[in-house]
Design a protein around this nucleic acid. Sequence first.
DNA 1: CCCGCAACATGACAATTGTCAAGTTCGCGC
DNA 2: GCGCGAACTTGACAATTGTCATGTTGCGGG
Lengths: 233, 233
Amino acid sequence: MSHEAQKAIARQSLLLRSLPEQHVETLLSHAIWRQYDRGETIFLQEEKAQAIHVVLEGWVKLFRMTPTGAEAVVSVFTRGDSFGEAVALRNVPYPVSAEAVSACDVMHIPSPILISLMKEDPEIGISILAATFTHLHSLVAQLEQLKAQTGAQRVAEFLLNLCDSDAGSCDVALPYDKMLIAGRLGMKPESLSRAFSRLKAVGVKINRNHAVISDIALLRDYAESDPAENWGR
Amino acid sequence: MSHEAQKAIARQSLLLRSLPEQHVETLLSHAIWRQYDRGETIFLQEEKAQAIHVVLEGWVKLFRMTPTGAEAVVSVFTRGDSFGEAVALRNVPYPVSAEAVSACDVMHIPSPILISLMKEDPEIGISILAATFTHLHSLVAQLEQLKAQTGAQRVAEFLLNLCDSDAGSCDVALPYDKMLIAGRLGMKPESLSRAFSRLKAVGVKINRNHAVISDIALLRDYAESDPAENWGR
DNA sequence: CCCGCAACATGACAATTGTCAAGTTCGCGC
DNA sequence: GCGCGAACTTGACAATTGTCATGTTGCGGG
């Protein structure tokens, strides 16, 4: 991909899109571009944050390692997503690790640049808060899902988020492999398989890495229904 | 409690404690004080945020109502905690509702005050980001717990967080009632009861609203152990 | 003081999920 | 093309958790 095309993607990110043009230019001119191979580490939990990151291409996961070695996936980002905003400005350790789950292009904006710019124009602070709030919100939504929905319902919501429309039928590509989807939804791959087969009853068919949803409204009803009322299947 | 004592508590909050004195004065002089009864709503999900909140006394819970009416507790705050930072500055709807779970004193700092102050001094933005980051971090920790620990282990961590020391024994008061603890930990009250009885095996005794931990290190080992390796109880 | 209600504990049962094992499919390097 | 390995599926079994029912306790209002 051309450098210009990458800059265009970066400009669409939540972090940059509401900033005055001159600041965007400054940030882009100081940014560092890097490519990562599948499986490569972008940063590690406990490491000091020194930059904000913007995904230009590919997929990146944020995860935490538990003391026992199990990993809990916190979020998955792709083209146009930024992350690390809140940490970068405070010189504190990352609470999570980041790893490329496919080959990736990632742009890094060194935090000192941000900080100096922020001191001249508080508008930057607002942009960063906007991006941070969006992450906060998505974490809250995940918490709600984990606490109040069954596995199959979480899978249903995940599929619904991949659809553009909100009624009718739909054919979506699963964005990354099922092991990662399972991790993102807080379950084992085996449970994800079972969840998929359970969703057949509400018009979902899985083929390779494609999902065909015959009735989006029906699926949404299922996702939002009380877990208890589906006892008769 | 005297007004002065309340101001002293507010100054210790994550939001205010690193701010230059003059700004703290400005904010405090514009703040609104309110008392809430147990069960009273402080704000509702979807409502537009107009202030940052600081708990001066009592306990406040943040929660989300699912479409089916179940509630998922996101966080619980008490004296000296601030919340709503990221939302207040953006004039967006709250992603959660807030309710007093005991009688409460809460201070509200209207967001216009914050915004105008922020435009003069970017330092304010940093303070707000600091507070927001702390919340982000605690949500990430909760996600990890829900995804990678059993119910009993989450209860163990909850108890450990109530202890000051990190070894020896300890007698802590449960800060709020067990229904709320269960909600905060993502389980039903019945499951919390069972988790408590399971913890007897690692030296925890529950008496009314008191927990006696005979060996903190042992309990921590249990909380961090692999769920699978405790099969023989 | 007594009543009634809400919180809490406990047991039985069903549903869900993790674990283990076995088999299938798919993609990639040789 | 062949074969290896990782991803994925499926089944059986055990552990966990939610649900429902029942009983106890403690507290506040009449």
